[in-house]
Computed example of a mutant assay.
Amino acid sequence: MIKLKRTPLYVFSILAAVIFLYPLLYSFFASLKDNVEIYNNSVFSLPDIWRWNNYKMALVDANISRAILNSFIYAIPGTFLCLVLSLMVAFVLSRYKLRMNGFLYNYFAIGLMIPVFSLMIPISKVVGALHLFNSYPLMIVLYGVFEMPLAIFLITGYMKGISKELDESAIIDGCGPIRMLFRIIAPLTMPAVSTAGILSFFDIYNDLVWNVILVSDQNMNNISMALMSFVGQQGSSQLGPTFAGIMLTIVPTIVVYLLFQERVEKGLSAGAVKE
């Protein structure tokens, strides 16, 4: 009876897997074909000739390898900056009773509601006035700050559920606020930190808006910008290299997600608090 009750769940899981894997499999097979095979053969038919040269064309013509490196340069420090600042803000909002806490929490929550497009003109004018276009540090700081509202919202909510008796014990043992945050509270908040880190990383990695506005140097293009430029250049002339470029952009995100997913599971067990 238990197995029969789970049958709809299994069926739904299989259908969901097929739906999610379909674009990935289609892109992979198409990346190894030419235009004739893509248009005339069935979707999942194997290539007549395995054209691995399509990946070489994508790497050389679109400079995908450099774009992937740039995306990591933006995403890793930006995510780290976001998490460190968000942890400190969440620590104050959740562990201290200050008059401004409610106002500050709402202030950061409002950041989730502001459309990014409404900030494009003012930020571009400020950056232009400071002559900071094509700057890695600027992009990293900008990405990190923009990801803070969601991270603060997630981490603060989780941190409020941690017993404050830990704070009292730490203070008695002579533990200061900074040491208490990073040695005691932060490890217990790892599930929320990991979730915020995953969302922030992929949001920065796949960004297109700010890279289009604030970066004109092609050597600083991230993966979305490089792929958009490559698709625009290729058009419908060579779809194989275009799909190869798409695959090269997808694989790193899958690998990073799998790595972060494992850390989330470890964080769930490490962050368990027994009342």
Results as ranks from 00 to 15, higher is better:
M159R: 10
M159D: 07
M159Q: 06
K160W: 02
K160F: 10
G161S: 09
S163H: 05
K164H: 12
E165N: 12
L166M: 07
D167C: 02
S169K: 14
I171A: 03
D173T: 01
G174S: 02
I178L: 06
I178V: 15
I178M: 12
R183K: 15
P187E: 00
P187Q: 07
M190S: 08
P191Q: 04
P191W: 00
P191A: 07
A192G: 09
V193Y: 04
A196G: 04
A196M: 02
A196K: 01
I198H: 10
L199D: 08
L199E: 04
D203V: 08
D203M: 10
N206Y: 06
D207F: 09
L208G: 14
V209T: 15
V209R: 11
V209D: 11
W210P: 00
I213Q: 10
V215D: 08
S216Y: 14
D217G: 11
D217N: 15
N221S: 09
N222A: 05
N222T: 10
I223Q: 04
S224W: 10
L227F: 14
M228L: 00
M228S: 05
S229Y: 08
F230G: 14
V231L: 14
S236T: 13
S237I: 12
S237F: 10
L239I: 13
L239N: 07
G240M: 06
T242V: 12
T242P: 02
F243V: 03
F243K: 07
I246T: 15
M247H: 11
L248P: 06
T249S: 15
T253Q: 13
T253H: 05
I254K: 07
V255N: 06
